[in-house]
């Protein structure tokens, strides 16, 4: 394939990209993953469980590596390992206070070991062209229609579960004690959320790679939470931002010879910085208006 040239005509560009089936699959997969990872990531950021998310994403790597080595389906490797790891994490947290987001050092130990295992599996399997790079940092080449279907089914299941659990989960995340007194099963929700986090991580890892999962899980959610404190709006904004950066990243990676993970992460990071800048400016403006307001009031009084 000779390298295409970006024309600044979006209609033409998209027509061109749409003529390659692998790009169509990449866009579809990207859209699914962005929405699912954004929604789950929003709760993860709110619950301060980014370390759990990171652990799950690292587990995605040995899962995929083992699947490659042993020759079973890549999706099975991702989902199987991530969900299993989520259950193990839930088990390890069992004795703790509900809502506490501190993870023990044991989590870190297991994480390091699994990462090493993944590297071993990659070393044992010598046939892969790109080595561990694609698994760690993401790739959009060669996503099959079957893979897209799997992503869609798993993603739909996660979104449905989140729709049912969402309100009590929000309550349990923000105010665990009162939620528990109101009869919300705080512990059960915590386990259920870890499993959802496992599935969402497994999905995101297939696009951004195991190490850049946070580009879709944390950055859009953190950006949206900077911009608004309304839960519904913030969640919607997260999904929209995630979707936007993923598709923009795909377009960029199609036209320029740099990796997809880099583009998606950089776009998301740029938006995060912009959001912080905007909030800072808004605060400064408000302070100034307050100051002039009191000055005017004092003047009036005088």
């Amino acid at each position: 394939m000779e390298s295409p040239v970006f024309s600044w005509n979006p209609l033409y560009d998209f027509q061109l990209m749409w003529s390659y089936p692998f790009m169509v699959n990449a866009f579809r997969a990207g859209a699914i993953v962005a929405v699912v990872a954004g929604a789950v990531g929003w709760f993860m950021v709110l619950r301060r469980q980014t370390f759990a998310g990171h652990t799950l994403s690292v587990v995605a790597f040995p899962g995929a590596a083992l699947a490659t080595l042993a020759g079973f389906s890549l999706s099975l490797g991702y989902f199987g390992f991530c969900v299993a790891a989520a259950l193990v994490l839930a088990l390890m947290r069992r004795g703790r206070e509900p809502g506490g987001s501190e993870e023990s050092a044991a989590t870190g130990v297991v994480q390091a070991f699994l990462l090493a295992c993944g590297y071993l599996f990659m070393a044992l399997y010598k046939g892969l062209l790109e080595g561990p790079q694609a698994l760690l940092f993401g790739s959009f080449l060669g996503i099959t229609t079957g893979q897209v279907a799997t992503l869609a089914v798993a993603g739909l299941a996660v979104l449905l579960a989140l729709a049912v659990l969402g309100r009590p989960l929000l309550f349990a995340s923000v105010d665990p004690q009162v939620a528990a007194a109101r009869g919300v099963p705080v512990r059960g929700l915590s386990v259920a959320f870890l499993v959802l986090l496992g599935v969402a991580t497994a999905e995101a890892a297939q696009i951004t790679g195991a190490l850049l999962v946070f580009a879709l899980m944390v950055l859009p959610a953190a950006t949206a939470q900077v911009l608004t404190a309304r839960p519904g709006l913030s969640l919607l904004l997260t999904v929209v931002l995630g979707f936007g950066v993923t598709w923009a990243g795909l377009v960029a990676a199609f036209y320029w010879p740099y990796p997809l993970g880099f583009f998606v992460t950089s776009f998301a990071f740029g938006l995060f910085l912009l959001a912080h800048g905007a909030r800072f400016a808004a605060c400064a403006l408000e302070r100034r208006r307050d100051a002039s307001g009191t000055a005017a009031l004092a003047g009036g009084a005088a």
């Binding site: 729709a163 049912v164 659990l165 969402g166 309100r167 009590p168 929000l170 309550f171 923000v174 105010d175 009162v178 939620a179 109101r182 009869g183 919300v184």
Partner: peptide, 12 residues
């Protein structure tokens, strides 16, 4: 608001 309906399942 969570005190009012935060323990309800599903989407309002």
């Amino acid at each position: 608001r969570m005190g009012l309906d935060g323990d309800r399942w599903g989407v309002p």
